[in-house]
């Protein structure tokens, strides 16, 4: 037997492994693709929703609630979100997400007497300045997310909250 020859045992091993592998793959491939579908699914679009009249927005961050339609598999519902909205020095509207970037608690404005005019998270004492920048030395490692926003016919429309680069 020359070097390139394979033995009968080896041939059978290869054939059985190949056929067995093919069958196992045929059974498992649809199931695995089925299971990982949410990972490969495209991110759902979210329509911009009218939140408030621009006239009601001041220099001080104010909390506005708004409702969006949410589709979760076979379950469709209306979910209430909120945003901290204010006009900055240049007159631009800033809409910040109230979700703390540490572990996702809900932050509040100006509720920590020790640090006035900051966003404060009651869970672990995370703090953010007015523009949402996380204060160094507190738990959050990134600034608050900012809602996509546009103004139309005197009304503020908000879309998805987008993360920003860390401070």
């Amino acid at each position: 037997m020359s070097k390139e020859d394979i033995s009968r045992r080896q041939f059978l091993n290869y054939t059985l492994t190949g056929v067995g592998g093919f069958m196992a793959a045929g059974v498992l491939m649809p199931m695995v693709r089925f299971a990982i579908d949410p990972v490969l699914a495209k991110e759902a679009n979210q329509d911009m929703v009218a939140v408030t009249e621009v006239a009601k927005i001041g220099d001080e961050p104010k909390r506005f609630n708004f409702k969006i339609k949410q589709k979760d598999g076979w379950y469709e519902s209306e979910v209430t979100l909120s945003a901290w909205v204010y006009k900055n020095g240049k007159g631009e509207i800033n809409a910040l997400s109230p979700v703390c970037k540490h572990l996702g608690c809900t932050i509040d404005w100006n509720t920590d007497p020790g640090h006035p005019n900051q966003f404060y998270c009651p869970c672990h004492g995370g703090r953010y300045t007015k523009d949402g920048t996380n204060v160094k030395g507190t738990p959050p490692l990134a600034p608050l997310d900012v809602y996509e926003s546009k103004v139309k016919d005197g009304k503020l429309y908000l879309g998805k909250a987008k993360p920003r680069k860390g401070a």
Partner: peptide, 11 residues
């Protein structure tokens, strides 16, 4: 809606 759902349920 789920990929291969027809196949997996069909199996």
């Amino acid at each position: 809606q789920v990929a291969f759902g027809v196949i997996v349920r069909g199996m």
